[in-house]
């Protein structure tokens, strides 16, 4: 018989050109073996198509989670811009104030120290997260 397994699949899936289809149907008609094979794959196909995921999807749209992820970068950008502007303005006002130089120096040192400590802890946590083998494990 002049056919291939690919022909069988294309016929089964309705992907054959009309001419090839007619030729293949002639081959099927002449071969009980091929009829049996075709019936078998058709049954498998029907059963696969019978699987439904309706309960898994019910009421669980991913949109809220996706939307939160899309909005988050915008939130971060706005927060950083706002905080930077306030920090620059606050620093300017502070430097222009009548407080004496020693007080300014001490306050600046305290603020700088807090920022440096915060940045180093954040950096350490980030480095640890990069190599954490369990970062994808959900609780």
């Amino acid at each position: 018989m002049d056919y291939s397994n690919d022909d069988l699949m294309r016929y089964l899936d309705g992907e054959m050109q009309p001419g090839d289809r007619a030729r293949f149907e002639g081959i099927v008609e002449a071969s009980t073996e091929l009829q049996r094979e075709l019936a078998l794959y058709r049954a498998l196909k029907d059963n696969l198509q019978g699987i439904s995921f309706a309960p898994a999807l019910a009421g669980r749209s991913v949109w809220d989670r996706v939307n939160a992820r899309l909005a988050r970068p915008i939130g971060w950008v706005m927060l950083v811009i706002g905080a930077t502007l306030w920090a620059i303005y606050g620093g300017y006002i502070y430097l222009q104030s009548a407080i004496n130089a020693w007080e300014k120096l001490a306050t600046s040192a305290v603020i700088s120290g807090i920022l440096i400590l915060f940045a180093t802890v954040a950096w350490e946590r980030y480095r640890a997260w990069l190599v954490d083998p369990y970062k994808d494990v959900h609780r």
Binding site: N5, D6, D7, L8, M9, R10, E15, L40, Y41, L44
Partner: peptide, 12 residues
């Protein structure tokens, strides 16, 4: 078609 055949064969 060929990939589908092998997949269906494997499932069978």
């Amino acid at each position: 078609a060929s990939r589908l055949y092998h997949a269906r064969r494997a499932l069978r």
